[in-house]
């Protein structure tokens, strides 16, 4: 019998994105945090100690990577951490909120492999997204630090603007797209195709 080799992780969009402004931030720890909406303020105070940032308000993200927190509905948060493990992140969060029998009605789940994170950057990023996303992504409406749950094509996604005008963005336009693992292949191909559409429009398909 063969001793099992060291298992290799495989990210959902592996090998699909070479040579574009699209890349995959693989294997990030992700925890979903739920609290009753009316306890969100209390939860924010308790979680801040552990997270280093408060829980975000509607349509926003807080934190800067390790971890950052995305608002995904009343009382719903997605915590993403590029340094922790999913288990560690969940254990810490859960403890900070007092555990299952704490005062709050809170629950935490390690869903690190549920979604992958694609990063789309470059001056055409908004144009590429407009080929599939019905939201208004103009910096005036959706500046850096904004987060929304929306669709791109027929895939449900979380859309996070990390770069561009806004309180925490730099100059370069950048978005992070959180997509469920089984939709990553579709979304990567859709965005690659959309980018080609934007390029060909720019290069004067106009007669």
């Amino acid at each position: 019998m063969a001793e099992p080799a060291v298992p290799r992780r495989r990210s959902p969009a592996e090998g699909l994105l070479e040579g574009s402004h699209l890349s995959e931030l693989s294997f990030l720890a992700q925890a979903e945090l739920r609290v009753d909406a009316e306890e969100a303020d209390a939860a924010s105070r308790m979680a801040e100690q552990f997270l280093g940032c408060p829980l975000p308000g509607p349509g926003r993200a807080t934190g800067n990577g390790a971890p950052y927190v995305l608002w995904s509905g009343p009382g719903r948060y997605l915590v993403v951490d590029s340094e922790a493990t999913g288990r560690g992140l969940c254990a810490g969060l859960s403890a900070a909120l007092g555990g299952e029998y704490g005062r709050l009605c809170a629950a935490v789940a390690d869903l690190s492999a549920q979604r992958t994170v694609l990063e789309l950057s470059g001056p055409d990023a908004e144009e590429v997204l407009a080929r599939g996303c019905p939201m208004d992504l103009h910096p005036r409406e959706f500046g850096a630090g904004s987060y929304a749950q929306t669709v791109i094509g027929k895939a449900a996604v979380g859309l996070h603007r990390t770069g561009g005008p806004g309180p925490s963005g730099g100059d370069a336009t950048a978005f992070r797209i959180l997509v469920r693992a089984s939709f990553a292949d579709y979304l990567a191909r859709l965005l690659t195709d959309a980018a080609a559409g934007v390029r060909s429009a720019r290069e004067g398909a106009v007669v």
């Binding site: 495989r10 080929r131 094509g153 027929k154 895939a155 089984s182 939709f183 579709y186 195709d193 559409g197």
Partner: peptide, 16 residues
């Protein structure tokens, strides 16, 4: 149809 044609007409969910 836009780009919703060919194999982009509908998401094809794949297992790992």
């Amino acid at each position: 149809a836009g780009r919703a044609r060919g194999d982009l007409i509908d998401p094809l969910r794949r297992t790992p």
